[in-house]
């Protein structure tokens, strides 16, 4: 209930941002929402089920390309976004069947190569995907400001939908099952959880919104190419955000997205050549000093009544 209230307070405040912010602020916020979607999605499989998936970039790129190809074949933009989500979901179901029997590092490595594989496939099909030259998307006939606002609201809506899904999942049988799998998969089997089906469901949930985010991103930037949308950093950053915010929590992943992207804007611009190294330093600091994330830190400082019981 408190989670819904928090969402109901935050979402309208964010929606009011275009009234005060300029295009730069909107663009930054849109990026934050996009990464919030991806961090939250990764949390479904990585945080709840404890399966460290590196497949986020694969789902993102797949969504971007699915939507771009559909739009270049005449499908309107918003239905193409929805189709991209479905494509990512089906791909995750198929992929999950192939690699979810692996655990720990083995799963991580198997999921890591998926984006590379898709990137190569896109590269080798130039007639269909533009290959290494990339793809252009239909331009929107809107002013620059109107476009910025449109994509701002599109990403915000998707981010809110993802948070809502997380809230529902947290209290659902599937959510409890995933948490059991994270803690002890064989014990989860013993009490009658169909762990394979649950992991696959968690993996599909971690894909569908990322697919849509990729599709919206493609329309937003008008041009995609393989190194951009299958970038391994698209897989790594959401993980760092979740660790930063709070693993397995509802508002941790969005919080992590906000903090990391602001850090990126404010600090990393000054260290252009070293920003990936900075990411590494943040990961190390996180593991050493903040293993439960910022949200746990905030809760420690300001314990609520519900927690004191």
């Amino acid at each position: 209930m408190r989670s819904w209230l928090t969402l109901a307070v935050i979402a309208p405040l964010l929606a009011a941002l275009p009234l005060v912010g300029n295009n730069y602020a909107l663009r930054l916020a849109t990026t934050v929402f996009m990464y919030s979607v991806m961090a939250q999605s990764w949390n479904f499989i990585g945080g709840l089920a404890g399966y460290p998936s590196f497949a986020t970039a694969a789902f993102f790129g797949l969504g971007a390309y699915a939507s771009a190809i559909l739009q270049n074949h005449g499908v309107p933009m918003v239905p193409a976004w929805a189709c991209a989500g479905v494509a990512a979901l089906l791909f995750a179901a198929f992929l999950g069947g192939a690699i979810l029997h692996l655990r720990g590092h083995y799963f991580a490595i198997a999921s890591l190569i998926v984006a590379e594989m898709l990137r190569e496939i896109v590269n080798t099909l130039p007639d269909f995907t533009g290959g290494g030259k990339g793809m252009n998307l239909p331009l929107l006939k809107l002013s620059v400001t109107a476009q910025a606002q449109f994509f701002f609201y599109a990403m915000l809506a998707l981010a809110v939908l993802t948070v809502a899904t997380a809230i529902v999942l947290q209290r659902s049988k599937l959510g409890f099952g995933l948490r059991c799998i994270q803690q002890n998969e064989s014990a989860a089997d013993i009490i009658g959880i169909n762990s394979y089906a649950y992991k696959t469901a968690g993996f599909c949930l971690s894909a569908v919104f990322v697919g849509v985010a990729g599709a919206i991103y493609a329309s937003w930037v008008n041009y995609i190419d393989p190194p951009d949308v299958f970038d391994v950093l698209i897989s790594v950053k959401p993980m760092v955000m979740v660790l930063l915010g709070g693993l397995g929590t509802i508002f941790g992943p969005p919080l992590g997205a906000v903090v990391l992207l602001l850090l990126e804007e404010v600090v990393w611009r000054n260290f252009l050549t070293m920003h990936v190294a900075a990411l590494g330093v943040i990961i190390v600091v996180l593991v050493l000093f903040l293993p439960h994330g910022l949200l746990a830190l905030i809760r420690e400082r300001f314990p609520t009544k519900a927690m004191a019981n």
Binding site: C180, N184, I190, G192, I193, N194
Partner: peptide, 24 residues
């Protein structure tokens, strides 16, 4: 039959080493 079928059929397994959900 799957483990869930066995649970439904009335078998409960207390495994070696307990295997609790330790963070719950």
């Amino acid at each position: 039959a799957t483990p869930a079928d066995f649970v439904r059929a009335g078998i409960a397994h207390v495994p070696e080493g307990r295997r609790l959900f330790s963070a719950m």
